[in-house]
């Protein structure tokens, strides 16, 4: 079922958060469009969860402003921000039934009993939880609990959904399924989603755009393909993509003074290759072959089709890459250089 949800864009201006003098979020500017699925991606401790919590109102910014729609919400309580939050640990009330958990935000807002039961059932059924309404969270699987947490969020019909690594506690199979459900949910609700993750697969598959964070700053904002194809820095080049982009020192693959990056799928083993690589590891993944080797002191991974010739460990092979597939980075700032 579709909800006529309120919609809103989120705008962050010079948002900064310090904890005891340590800067967790450092002057972040970000515009999240109405109904966009924005991913905040970055390694642990990069400040992405803190940023999300400031949007939700669970942390006060040290500096800067948070706008939801046209309203500056810095001094607005979390409950009045029209934002729902889904936590990594689900944060369900263990002593309440699924129904009571889902209804709870409406109960607090003094919605009529019949009306809130109806809304809770609708939210639960839209997530396939209809038959579990009388159970308590302890009697549910991890995936079901996460869906209860989602139902509790959507029952409020918020303008913005904030999700803090909601799939991290699920096993790989369930994570894949729930990922698809979240994408469908976003399409159905047509609401603004801000989603924190350190998992680049989630980031690549779910978001309309990705904001990649490192050390409290946003390093790049773009569509998943854009971030993958044109990483703004060595950090992003190596953080997004599995295996990460190979980075070779200046002068190794082409003349010039830039660091050169090349994705594993763009490197080919060929007798005409300009670079010599000593094979150190071969991984057969069924659908592809990963050949890892050393070029000088640098580790290089080559992605080969599944049934390619498997090189011997210790063998020397020649590798090559098209000039069009090379990425250049400044050796000092490690930022992208477009030539």
């Amino acid at each position: 079922m579709a909800y006529p949800l309120p919609v809103a864009n989120v705008r962050l201006k010079n948002l900064t958060k310090q904890f005891d003098g340590v800067t967790a979020v450092d002057g972040v500017d970000l515009d999240v469009a109405d109904r966009e699925f924005m991913i905040l991606l970055g390694p642990s401790g990069c400040g992405k969860s803190t940023l999300l919590r400031m949007i939700a109102g669970l942390e006060d910014p040290t500096e800067g402003e948070v706008y939801i729609g046209e309203t500056m919400v810095n001094d607005v309580l979390p409950k009045d921000r029209d934002v729902a939050m889904v936590f990594q640990s689900y944060a369900l009330y263990p002593h309440k039934t699924v129904q009571a958990n889902i209804e709870f935000p409406l109960k607090v807002r003094k919605v009529d009993k019949v009306e809130r039961a109806k809304s809770a059932l609708a939210a639960a059924e839209s997530l396939g939880l209809g038959e579990y309404m009388s159970r308590k969270p302890g009697a549910l699987s991890g995936g079901q609990r996460q869906r209860v947490a989602l139902a509790r969020a959507i029952v409020r019909k918020p303008a913005v959904f904030c999700m803090d690594e909601p799939l991290s506690n699920l096993d790989a199979k369930l994570r894949g399924e729930t990922r698809a459900e979240l994408i469908a949910l976003h399409q159905r609700l047509e609401s603004t989603f801000i989603y924190v993750t350190h998992d680049q697969v989630e980031a690549m598959t779910m978001g309309n755009r990705i904001a990649v964070m490192s050390r409290g700053k946003i390093e790049q904002v773009g569509t998943p393909q854009d971030v993958y194809d044109r990483p703004a820095s060595v950090f992003i080049a190596q953080f997004v993509g599995t295996p990460p982009m190979n980075i070779l020192p200046a002068g190794s693959i082409e003349t010039g003074k830039h660091l050169v990056g090349v994705r594993p799928e763009h490197v080919h083993i060929s007798p005409e290759g300009s670079l010599a690589m000593t094979v150190t590891l071969v991984e057969q993944l069924g659908h592809e072959l990963l050949v890892t080797g050393r070029v000088g002191e640098r580790r290089v991974v080559v992605r080969q089709p599944a049934h390619s010739v498997v090189p011997e460990i210790g063998a020397e092979v020649r590798i090559v890459a098209d000039a069009a597939d090379l990425h250049r980075f400044d050796p000092v700032t490690e930022l992208r250089i477009d030539i």
Binding site: K79, M85, S89, A91, P94, H95, F104, V108, R156
Partner: peptide
């Protein structure tokens, strides 16, 4: 868990509400 207090505050519960609805029953 801290998240439970935070979830409650997102839901609109104040301190007295959280004490009565969550902390004491648990």
């Amino acid at each position: 868990p801290k998240e439970m207090r935070e979830a409650a505050s997102m839901d609109g519960l104040g301190h007295i509400g959280f004490l009565r609805e969550v902390a004491v029953p648990l």
